[in-house]
Design a protein around this nucleic acid. Sequence first.
DNA 1: ACAATCAGTGAACAATGTTTACTGAGCAAC
DNA 2: GTTGCTCAGTAAACATTGTTCACTGATTGT
Lengths: 206, 206
Amino acid sequence: MFTEQPPDSERSPQARRLAQTREAILQNARQMIVMQGIEGFSIRALADSIDYTPGALYKYFSSKEALVDAVRADCFEELNNYIAQQVLTAVTTSDMLLLGGLAYIEYARQHPQEYHLMFNMEPSQATSGEQRAIAMRTLLQIVQLGIAQGQIVVQGAYDAAAIAYHCWAIVHGMASLQTTVLLDERHDLPEVNRLILQKVIEGFTP
Amino acid sequence: MFTEQPPDSERSPQARRLAQTREAILQNARQMIVMQGIEGFSIRALADSIDYTPGALYKYFSSKEALVDAVRADCFEELNNYIAQQVLTAVTTSDMLLLGGLAYIEYARQHPQEYHLMFNMEPSQATSGEQRAIAMRTLLQIVQLGIAQGQIVVQGAYDAAAIAYHCWAIVHGMASLQTTVLLDERHDLPEVNRLILQKVIEGFTP
DNA sequence: ACAATCAGTGAACAATGTTTACTGAGCAAC
DNA sequence: GTTGCTCAGTAAACATTGTTCACTGATTGT
C-alpha cells in the first residue's frame, strides 16, 4: 500500500540521485500532461524533454500506465491537501462542507488537466479508486460529526451516507461541467457555485 | 451543420449499399467500444471484425476521430430520445426535471461506456459541445416554463440559469460517480438518486 | 587495483493511425 | 455487347507509438 522509504538524509548519494531523477521525470511528465493533455502524452516525447532514451524511463516505471498513475497520485495528494487546508479554517461542519466543496471546484478550475486525469479516466482502475474512497470516507466523517453535534439533521433515508453522496455529487458535477461544458460561458460561475452549494447545505441544516 | 440526404428510397442502389456499410461500420465500432472501452478501440481491429482492410474505412470516415465522433453523435441522439421520452410522460415541470434527470442517470448506468464517450473525454472538442449546449438549452426552457407557470420560484441570483445548472450538475455528478467510483457499492443507489433529485427540486418549488 | 553493479543506450519489435498507388467489379454510353 | 470510367476496396508502405533486451561504461564497495 505505502512505499515506506528512509528519509533523504539517510540514503546513499546514488540512491538520492536516483530519487531525484525519478522526481524530475514525474515533474516533467506532469508538466507535459498539463500542457498538451493526457491524450497526447507520449513516453518518447517525455524522454526527449529530459534528455533520456525512452528505454531509460523503464528503470523507474514499469510502464507508461505506472508513470501516469504516479502523476495521478501526486495530483490526488495535492488536491487533498488543498481541500484539507480550506476545511481546517472552518469551525462549523456546514462551513467545512462549503469550503471543502468550493476548494474542490476551484482546484478543478485551476487544474483542468489534472482533474481530467483524476476523475475522467476509464472506469475501473485500482489506484485512484482507493484515493477516491479515502476522500469519500473523510467527507462521510464530517457529515457524521455534524450529525453528532446537531448541526446536520437526517430525515429518513436521507441519512449520513446520502448527504455525503449528495455533497460529492453536486460538487463533482459542478466541477466537471465547469471544465468540459461551460468553459467560460458565464463570468460569475464561482458565485453561482457557492450559492448552489449553500442551498444544498441548507437542505440538511436546521 | 446538418447533412441533408435524400430518403433511402430515392437513392441509387450503390448509394444505398454505401450507406449500409457505413452504418455497419458505425454499429460495429460502437459495439467494440462498448465491449472493450474507448481506450482500447482500434481502427484495425474494427476493420478485421468487418472483414475490411484498415484503409477502406477511410473511404467512409476521414479519421479515427471522425469515426468516434459519429458514434458519439449516435449516442447523444439515443440519450436525448431516451430522456425526451421520459419527460413527455410528465405533466408538471417538476416531474419533467425529475424524470428527465433520472432518465439521464439510468442511461449512464446502463451504458457506462457510451456515457464515458460522451462526457468524460478531453476538454474542448467541437461536435459534442454543441449537443451538450442543446441539452442545456432544453433544460433551461423547462425551467423557464416552470417559472412562467408558477411551479418554480426564483429567489435573487438563484435564477432560471442557476436552477438549470444546479439540476444538470447534480444529475451529472450522480451519474458520473455512479459509473466511476461507486460502481456497485450500495444496492439502493437508484432510490437515493431519486431522493436527492427530489430534494433539489423541492428547493425551488413552493 | 579490481570486480561488480546497474543507470542509460541503441537498436529492434509489435501495434497503432494514415496515405497512396493499384485493381477490378459494376455502371453509363454508345 | 463492347468500351471506358468511376470508385469501393486492397496491399503495402510510412511514421509514430509503447516496450524489450543485449550491451556498455562509469560508479562503487572491497
